[in-house]
């Protein structure tokens, strides 16, 4: 006949003295733990390992016409910088890219403004984006060459196409996802429509807008190099794409690799410095991205 034992009554207890001697409360991390926490360091190690694998494979292959070693490429890169040929080609490409990117952003801003203010604008943007976003910009190049001739005009046209849709799509999606509470707060304090867009909608949609800018940048960069491969000859200077194409014709493969390396390095720099800094100064600081 075991009845469930009742919990025994217990008196209140008050601990007058607290235990001591627990050592340090916050123990600093070791040197290695802090190094391992450094993203720049981790990525540098990764890059060094990749370069090492490249070098090992190229040495094993032993055919610099097919696959030059890392050191050969590095030397070609250095020579290209020293003679100015590579620098000039890079400068030419980047300048063209910035022009196309800026123009694409301006169009994207106009399209998004139309889309958030009117319903027909939103429908139009939706339809146009689903039509044109999957269309590779480079497929428009033949047409652009007829319309704008063999020159900067055509390249800028395809760049705008590359940037416009991805940026507009992301920005518009960002605006639509701005929290209704923030919107009501903005209205509560009587913001005018322009102030409402700049003070509520744009910061609220910034995570999406930045993603759009990044995707647009990558699309523009790859479109530009591809377009230059096709007809860099006609442009006055000739950009990186042309540099690569020309050196391939001369069978100077280390220089081809140097050109490709430049494309990659530039992409890394923009992604890791420009966009990373933008994110750290804004959405990370505000806790909108972890």
């Amino acid at each position: 006949m075991a009845e469930p034992a009742a919990a025994p009554p217990r008196p209140d207890r008050i601990y007058e003295t607290l235990p001591e001697g627990f050592g340090v409360v916050a123990k600093p991390l070791s040197f290695w733990a802090r190094i391992a926490d450094n993203g720049v360091f981790r990525k540098s190690v990764l890059l060094a390992v990749l370069a090492l694998i490249w070098q090992a494979y190229a040495l094993w292959l032993g055919n610099s016409l097919l696959f030059p070693t890392f050191t050969e490429t590095g030397y070609a890169f250095y020579e290209g910088m020293r003679s100015g040929a590579l620098t000039e080609a890079t400068f030419h490409s980047v300048w063209l890219l910035l022009k196309g990117y800026a123009l694409g952003l301006a169009f994207a801003a106009a399209a998004t403004a139309f889309a958030i203010t009117t319903r027909v604008g939103a429908d139009l943007l939706d339809t146009l984006t689903s039509m044109f976003n999957p269309l590779p910009s480079i497929a428009l190049l033949p047409l652009a060459m007829i319309w704008f001739g063999l020159g900067e005009g055509s390249i800028i046209f395809v760049l705008v196409h590359a940037v416009l849709w991805s940026v507009a799509l992301n920005t518009h999606a960002g605006f639509r996802s701005v929290s209704p509470t923030w919107r009501m707060v903005g209205q509560n304090y009587g913001l005018s429509s322009l102030a409402y867009v700049t003070k509520i909608l744009i910061p609220g949609a910034l995570p999406s807008i930045l993603t759009g800018l990044k995707i647009g940048w990558a699309f523009a960069w790859r479109t530009l190099i591809a377009a230059e491969l096709v007809f860099g000859v006609s442009s006055s200077g000739g950009g990186l794409g042309w540099y690569i194409f020309q050196n391939k014709n001369l069978l100077d493969i280390p220089n081809v690799f140097a050109g490709l390396l430049m494309v990659i390095i530039f992409g890394l720099i923009v992604d890791n410095f420009v966009f990373r800094v933008l994110e750290q100064r804004t959405i990370r600081r505000w806790g909108m991205q972890s």
Partner: peptide
């Protein structure tokens, strides 16, 4: 509001 997100995070 009830929601904690009524403050503007930026």
């Amino acid at each position: 509001f009830q929601e904690f997100d009524q403050l503007l995070p930026w």
